[in-house]
Design a protein around this nucleic acid. Structure first.
Lengths: 122, 122
DNA sequence: ACTTGACTTAGAGTTTACTCTAAGTTGTAG
DNA sequence: CTACAACTTAGAGTAAACTCTAAGTCAAGT
């Protein structure tokens, strides 16, 4: 598929897609006869994975490091697994922290509603 | 307390504290005889709340809007509560999304460990 | 043959949230 | 009285992640 279709499916702008290729996050993207990028199913799977890492707070620089290892082949499997394991631990901590933040926010909201309640009864 | 002490307690750099005051996030900070900022317990409580909103993904621009309403007094209580309620809903969604991401990451890690296991048995 | 629209590139510009610099003032210790 | 550290300000600089511009190529439709 062309970049427009790929952009629609992945919900990433063509600008960003080219940018990802430029910095080495996307590599080996094939081209058609006229030199335009031609994306495949494999590219979708890979960018969806990039999105997962990015959405869970991994900076592009680190994702790029993962992409580098991936490019080096099977010999880096363990290293890549280690990166994902560390990231998963980080994410677990982040979720726990967010749950605590949520609890505190709800307490504050409750406090607001009680205060407003009081004012209405004045 | 002076800015250095305040910085240590809140774990925000003096640069950032001054920046927050400059953009209007921190207001009404008192000064001592020599014109230096003098922070109180109330300032700590307020920046800790700013940190909570920020850490849960609220952009400074939105936190600033909340600070503006706060500055307008009790008449904006309901509006501020609404902002927090919306943010709490957003955070709940984010936590759910992160949990899904975590599940997917763990599946990939499992896949890695199985692949590596297989290679060792070759 | 020519216009149209989607693509290409290198590189410039934008946004958010800081982070630092330069020049100047003030309080305390020797 | 002077050195020194900590503060002050306005404004410049930085990093990350895009986002856009300008100039050019190319294939399809009229």
């Amino acid at each position: 598929m062309n970049i427009k279709k790929f952009s629609e499916i992945t919900e990433i702008s063509p600008y960003t897609i080219r940018y990802y290729e430029k910095i080495g996050l996307l590599r080996g993207v094939s081209r058609n006869a006229s030199g335009h990028r031609w994306f495949t199913e494999k590219d979708i799977i890979w960018v969806e994975f990039i999105k997962r890492l990015k959405d869970t707070g991994m900076p592009l620089e680190n994702i790029l490091k993962y992409a580098d290892l991936r490019g080096e082949g099977a010999s880096t499997s363990e290293l890549r697994m280690k990166i994902l394991e560390d990231h998963a631990v980080m994410l677990e901590d982040k979720i726990a922290e967010d749950m605590y933040h949520l609890k505190k926010l709800k307490e504050k909201i409750k406090h607001y509603s009680e205060t407003i309640e009081l004012e209405l009864n004045t």
